[in-house]
Simulated assay, not measured.
Amino acid sequence: MKGIITVSLFFLSALAQAGEVEIVKVELLEQAPQNWRAHVTLKHADTGWDHYADGWRVVTPEGKELGHRTLHHPHVNEQPFTRSLSGIAIADDMTEVMVEAHDKVHGWSADRVRIDLQQASGDRYRVERR
């Protein structure tokens, strides 16, 4: 019984150390009218299959999802890491979007990046229009 408790405490400690996923930077590139590509760099202390950053999404300020990238495996030895998504439909009249990140334990992180589409760059983001 003592061994089970020790192993359980070890795994709980590892989960607590991983914390929430951090969005390091976002690059939004306009490929065509209302068609964007995003490169999102995340940092997370992935511990393995039970706790890793498993996705990110682009949403409107009201929370409507415009694009979602699922991450299918942990990136234990690759931190921070960047993954991309094409085909994000952002209407021409939109002035801002948000990027959110998700991990298997904490869900959607409170760490979000607000992107002002009228600015070429800002806190943790860059926007490139055609």
Rank of each mutant, 00 (worst) to 15 (best):
M1Q: 13
I5D: 10
T6F: 04
T6L: 11
V7D: 13
L9T: 14
L9W: 07
L9P: 00
F11H: 11
L12V: 13
A14E: 09
Q17I: 12
A18F: 10
A18Y: 09
E20T: 15
V21P: 02
E22P: 05
V26L: 07
L28C: 03
L28E: 06
L29H: 08
L29F: 09
Q31W: 00
P33D: 11
N35I: 01
W36T: 05
R37C: 06
A38W: 07
A38P: 04
A38G: 05
T41S: 14
L42N: 03
L42Q: 02
H44R: 10
A45P: 00
T47V: 14
G48F: 10
G48R: 09
W49A: 05
W49N: 02
H51W: 01
H51Y: 05
Y52H: 07
Y52E: 01
W56Y: 08
R57P: 00
R57W: 05
V58N: 05
V59I: 15
T60M: 03
P61F: 04
K64A: 08
K64W: 04
E65K: 15
E65M: 07
E65R: 15
G67D: 02
G67E: 05
H68D: 09
H68S: 09
R69N: 13
T70L: 12
T70A: 13
P74V: 02
H75K: 04
Q79N: 11
T82I: 00
R83Y: 06
G87N: 09
I88M: 06
I90Y: 06
A91E: 14
M94H: 01
M94A: 08
T95G: 12
E100D: 11
V105E: 02
G107I: 13
G107R: 10
D111P: 00
D111Y: 06
D111T: 10
R112T: 12
V113S: 08
R114K: 08
D116Y: 02
Q118H: 08
Q119F: 09
A120F: 10
S121H: 10
D123K: 15
D123H: 15
R124Y: 10
V127S: 10
V127A: 06
E128I: 13
